[in-house]
Design a binder for these strands. Structure first.
Lengths: 334, 334
DNA sequence: ACCCAAGATGAAACCGGTTACATCTTGGAA
DNA sequence: TTCCAAGATGTAACCGGTTTCATCTTGGGT
């Protein structure tokens, strides 16, 4: 059964399509009996206006785009839910595209958003942006979108609104807290801080923490690779072999935390080190396994990001905002 | 900077918009030098055609819809990724909407898909469909979408393509396997089988299993409530209090499995019963905690579902398909 | 009774593409 | 040389809405 059009409805009601359009958009302009007649015909034929046509005609879209690395990662899944809660309330639908933490996909995702002429974009940039040339390209692409962009979780220092957690501060706090508990040899397992702003923020926080408590950085305790479980697994295994051992370890995202736990469980040394994980790791609380972590509430992040976009759409000229969210340290084992 | 239109490009190139449209859609129809000129102008001004206009004009959309209960549940997050892999390859973008396992939201989601005039819909129905009236309404709504619909994970017996796991068989197998290992008192924690096809399939599988091995069903061992962690937690606590105890328990989705584990961990009785979980529970493998589960590969489910939609779009008249996927039992503790 | 403003509705242009059809070239066959 | 088919391009209608502007009623003030 083909979809009805506004002309079909107009014909059945014996009015012009302008009138039908009015009952859709400003019903108060249409005289009572006419409106009722049109409404009943719309109901009878189950008519729903086409967003495509409406968007084209109005020159604005009713959908916003979301670009994240991978939705199956619970951090981003939850972020996405938070975004949805707010956009839904504002009558915006969500167009999803992953970038798989990969620059090429990232550009394709932006291209998609552009052809779709979305109203705004939530953008978690692919994690690595080494060369400045790449960054300029992304910036150009973002600007040519012609719509507001909210950079989430990763501040790639572009002239757009951003919102993310204060990872640097959280890392610093974690180090200080560990030091206060007597730890002097604190290892860290992180992503690559030379190619990722995210990783370098975290690393800087680590260094600041060490400095604050007067501990000299020991390269043997610093692992910076990729944000993958497998990398942390290998790093942990290597740590376990060292002649001089750390007494604490900080893992810098949920995948890395899982990799560390995997290695620890395999060696039966789960509590060899005091472990602080950036991002809570699921199931540990249920299993009553004590767990220290830096809590980043990604649902809240999503909600805040969505509110930021809504306000940006309403006030396009307002100056750029950079929102920093607190990520508290939750201590259970030391 | 406003977006360029096809007319702008045509004007700059000194040709008609038809010609520009041709270099976009069938470049071979355009003479070499003309095409190159147009292409270079498009590149220079970073022109990207509007999908909105194209969709309206072509009378087909390039996006497909996905309706799932909640994306933050890893089962659905992974399902979504699987869908994306295939739709991406086929040049389709994804419009997301959650239904929160709630009928009202479900109808709103379908309405959204209709106004967006999507090319097809992946639909995981809200879990409960008690009254036949509600079902008819959903069916009417689905039909009025005017596009292919793939019902995923939950077969609500409507005339659309479906794909889901053979939960009934998997449950039956699990019971038989437990019985063969000597278990006679096998409890089950499930959703409400009177209001959900999903839950009733699982319950029926459980009953078939009992029957196959000649065990009489004992109501004291059957818990059917809602698919929430908190429900399984309470159910498990209650089981633990019983004078006559089961020796094994089957939990019928990942939330219920988690709730059971939570209760068990709290009582320090993690291995009091042999536990089989429908759906693998994350982290247990990493932590080297042995775990029996019915494995449902939701990434694969998503890919298969997407292939089904692609083929349905290509062959609208092909007869309806109902695909059943195997869900193997993974045994580790008995 | 007259006039005008306000209210209801319609006509038509427009949004940015696609496409059927018309027109104009051009080159090769006869 | 003539003629026609094939190839290149343009014209204009169309997709399904929205919106400006014009037209037509109607009722109240004087």
């Amino acid at each position: 059964m083909k979809n009805m059009t506004i002309s079909d409805i107009a014909a059945k009601a014996g009015v012009s399509k302008a009138t039908v359009s009015r009952v859709l958009n400003s019903p108060e302009m249409v005289e009572g009996s006419t409106r009722e007649k049109i409404e009943s015909i719309m109901k009878e034929y189950n008519y729903t206006p086409s967003a495509t046509a409406r968007n084209l005609s109005k020159q604005v879209s009713s959908t916003v785009g979301v670009i994240v690395p991978e939705i199956s990662n619970s951090f981003f899944g939850t972020l996405f839910s938070g975004i949805e809660e707010i956009t839904n309330k504002n009558g915006l639908s969500l167009l999803y595209c992953s970038n798989e933490d990969n620059e090429k996909k990232d550009l394709m995702a932006l291209e998609l958003m552009k052809t779709q002429r979305v109203r705004g974009v939530f953008y978690v940039p692919a994690v690595n942006y080494p060369a400045m040339g790449k960054k300029k390209k992304i910036q150009k692409e973002l600007e040519s979108l012609g719509c507001p962009v909210i950079c989430i979780d990763r501040d790639i220092a572009l002239p757009f609104d951003t919102i993310h957690f204060d990872d640097r501060k959280a890392m610093k706090n974690a180090v200080i807290s560990l030091a206060e508990a007597g730890h002097r040899r604190i290892a860290v397992i992180n992503g690559n801080s030379e190619s990722s702003v995210l990783a370098s923020e975290r690393y800087d926080g680590y260094l600041e923490g060490l400095k604050a408590v007067g501990i000299e950085m020991d390269e043997a305790f610093v692992y910076q690779g990729v944000y993958k479980q497998s990398y942390a697994y290998l790093a942990a295994k290597e740590l376990f072999q060292k002649k001089e051992q750390p007494t604490a370890v900080i893992t810098c995202n949920n995948n890395l935390g899982r990799g560390y736990l995997q290695a620890a469980a395999e060696c039966g040394t789960a509590d060899l080190y005091t472990h602080v994980s950036l991002d809570k790791i699921e199931m540990l609380d249920l299993l009553k396994i004590p767990h220290n972590y830096i809590e980043r509430d990604s649902y809240e992040l999503g909600k805040k990001a969505a509110e930021l976009l809504i306000s940006r759409i309403a006030f396009p000229e307002k100056r750029i905002q950079n929102i920093l969210m607190e990520a508290p340290l939750i201590r259970e084992t030391y």
